[in-house]
């Protein structure tokens, strides 16, 4: 189960990649997509939507169930991966690359309570 080095991770199995001083890219981890199974639908947020840390900002649906994706940071959605509209399975196939979900611009980027790749790898061992 790949945990990509250099990314930060939330307890709810989102990954966070800093792409500039104030913008992060967010997706779900390999572990999360494996737990969900075949993802068949995603309800993407609108550009400019405000998201609050810890709150659901989108829903991914697998064949079995609908699952919330929680914002790992607070901010404004500045980009969404529109490819997922027609190809939600990209989240299964390429969770860290093609399957990214949104980019969020933060007024104050606070990543202090996220886990490193090593910490997250240990975390999923334990759950």
């Amino acid at each position: 189960m790949e945990v990509r080095k250099g990314l930060l991770y939330s307890k709810e199995h989102e990954w966070v990649q800093e792409i500039s001083d104030s913008v992060v890219r967010v997706g779900i981890t390999e572990y999360a997509q494996d737990q969900l199974g075949d993802i068949v639908y995603i309800e993407l947020p609108e550009i400019d939507a405000e998201v609050a840390k810890g709150e659901s900002f989108t829903v991914v649906e697998s064949v079995k169930a609908a699952s919330d994706v929680y914002a790992p940071v607070s901010g404004t959605v500045v980009a969404v991966n529109e490819k997922l509209e027609d190809n939600p399975e990209l989240i299964n196939e390429s969770p860290y690359d093609e399957g990214w979900i949104v980019e969020i611009k933060c007024d104050e980027l606070d990543l202090s309570d996220l886990m490193t790749a090593e910490e997250y790898a240990r975390y999923i061992e334990e759950v």
């Binding site: 199974g37 075949d38 697998s62 299964n92």
Partner: peptide, 9 residues
């Protein structure tokens, strides 16, 4: 067993 590879497959 819930699934072996994928439900859709």
């Amino acid at each position: 067993p819930l699934q072996y590879t994928s439900i859709t497959a």
